[in-house]
């Protein structure tokens, strides 16, 4: 079976990419195929990249405070395109916003201090889930 494929992206006007790079590298070291799109991406660019690369999981990092705005647009676009790719969000997310993001369909939110091990495990579980669902379809 081929490696699980993850898109790592920075949504919105936000150049703080150390976190995203550390996570991308950790996923590579854990045996994932990681596609890193870099900073200042629009939700449209993230969705299109996910389609063209046929990824198993989308991970977005946001440290700008605009997570509610960008993520709701991202989730809407994914629904419109009929894309069943699990989304995880990481960054400086105030705790009260976590349930709101999950309500939008985000599968997991990683707050500052999250361990790489935890991130890797969640991403792997979500990727497994998606492949299994696809096989049954």
């Amino acid at each position: 079976m081929s490696n699980y494929k993850v898109l790592v992206s920075k949504l919105g006007l936000d150049g703080h990419d150390r976190g995203a790079k550390v996570v991308a590298r950790a996923l590579k070291d854990a045996g994932f195929d990681v596609i890193y799109t870099g900073i200042r991406q629009t939700p449209e660019q993230v969705v299109e990249a996910a389609i063209q690369e046929d990824v198993d999981v989308i991970g977005v990092s946001i440290l700008s405070g605009a997570h509610i705005h960008h993520v709701s647009r991202l989730m809407k676009l994914l629904r419109e395109r009929g894309l069943n790719v699990p989304v995880v969000v990481g960054g400086t997310i105030p705790i009260p916003d976590v349930p709101r993001l999950k309500q939008m369909g985000v599968r997991e939110v990683f707050l500052p201090g999250s361990s790489l091990k935890e991130i890797i495990n969640v991403v792997r579980r979500l990727a497994e889930e998606k492949r299994r669902a696809e096989q049954q379809a």
Binding site: N3, A24, R25, L27, K28, D29, A30, G31, F32, D33, V34, I35, Y36, T37, G38, Q41, T42, E44, Q45, E48, A49, Q52, E53
Partner: peptide
């Protein structure tokens, strides 16, 4: 070592993604 990959060629071309 890990059999994983970090692919970032796309990063330079993302303006064409849409």
């Amino acid at each position: 070592l890990s059999r994983g990959a970090l692919m970032a060629d796309r990063l330079r071309m993302q303006r064409h993604a849409t």
